[in-house]
Simulated scan of single mutants.
Amino acid sequence: MKKISIVTLALFMAMGTFFTSCEAIKNTNKTQRGAAIGAASGAIIGGILGNNVGTGGKGAIGAVLGGVVGGVAGGVIGNKMDKQARQIDEALPGAEVKRVGEGIQLVLNENAVRFDTNKSTLTASAKENLEKLVPVFSEYPDTDITIFGYTDITGPADYNLKLSKERAASVRNYLVGKGVASVRFNVTGLGIADPIATNDTAEGRSQNRRVEFAITANDKMRADAKVEAGN
């Protein structure tokens, strides 16, 4: 997965300190230790990757990904999210997959889902790439998916805000049409906020016309995780 070498190095360093200093962990069973690793790794990865969530959309995406269960139950969720993130990365290498806290941030830039200027319709290649995500989303039905739409700076800000939500809705509608439950989705538009490239070039503006996903545990996954953790 992208950035995995940096994350893994930091994770191993932190785990060494974590397990040598915590007597409580030493007295747990194998399942509890595995869940604790997930909890700690989620926090560490979130700290490392949190700065990669852009400034304009950081409040919106951060608010969605910021809610955590924590503890052993949070580790159970983190382990499931680790697995799902790897599968997304394998299914759609052109996307950016980031593990943040107990959730996943998925950036579908022009390499995965490209929008033409002033358009919210999906191209043939965008549909093809979105379809690759359907099996993964179907394998993890107990997650919620918030889709954020973005634009470049072409046109009035209020128009771009509306257009960005239409782009997010186009992605949701396509996935729902392929069998992903509609109740799992929320969509929002962030307009010109949080550019990931310069708006001074055609190539940069194309990259900014994108969607991002925040994938989080739903109530059922949280409840199941607490049961599995023995809470």
Score class of each variant (00 low, 15 high):
residue 52 N to M: 04
residue 105 Q to P: 01
residue 13 M to C: 07
residue 95 A to Y: 10
residue 54 G to W: 02
residue 36 A to N: 09
residue 9 L to Q: 10
residue 172 R to E: 15
residue 215 I to P: 12
residue 4 I to W: 01
residue 226 K to D: 08
residue 41 S to P: 03
residue 129 N to Q: 15
residue 72 V to K: 07
residue 87 Q to W: 03
residue 24 A to F: 05
residue 2 K to F: 05
residue 167 R to P: 07
residue 23 E to V: 09
residue 202 A to L: 15
residue 42 G to F: 08
residue 51 N to Y: 04
residue 22 C to L: 11
residue 105 Q to M: 15
residue 213 F to I: 05
residue 22 C to V: 00
residue 81 M to G: 07
residue 198 T to G: 14
residue 71 G to Y: 06
residue 68 V to C: 11
residue 14 A to D: 04
residue 203 E to L: 11
residue 15 M to Q: 09
residue 63 A to F: 08
residue 78 G to V: 11
residue 24 A to H: 02
residue 103 G to Q: 04
residue 193 A to T: 01
residue 10 A to P: 01
residue 217 A to Y: 03
residue 151 T to S: 15
residue 177 G to H: 00
residue 170 S to M: 07
residue 157 A to C: 00
residue 55 T to N: 11
residue 186 N to H: 06
residue 165 K to L: 04
residue 48 I to E: 07
residue 222 R to H: 00
residue 8 T to N: 07
residue 29 N to L: 01
residue 183 V to R: 15
residue 58 K to Q: 11
residue 56 G to F: 06
residue 198 T to D: 10
residue 56 G to H: 05
residue 191 G to W: 01
residue 141 P to G: 00
residue 123 T to L: 11
residue 17 T to R: 00
residue 70 G to E: 13
residue 177 G to V: 00
residue 231 N to P: 05
residue 207 Q to Y: 13
residue 115 F to H: 01
residue 222 R to F: 03
residue 49 L to R: 04
residue 231 N to H: 10
residue 43 A to L: 14
residue 227 V to S: 13
residue 25 I to L: 02
residue 201 T to G: 11
residue 113 V to C: 10
residue 167 R to W: 06
residue 220 K to L: 08
residue 222 R to N: 06
residue 197 A to G: 04
residue 142 D to T: 09
residue 193 A to L: 11
residue 5 S to R: 05
residue 27 N to L: 08
residue 50 G to D: 06
residue 109 N to L: 02
residue 194 D to I: 03
residue 141 P to A: 02
residue 147 I to L: 13
residue 197 A to K: 08
residue 2 K to Y: 03
residue 138 S to M: 01
residue 63 A to S: 14
residue 93 P to M: 05
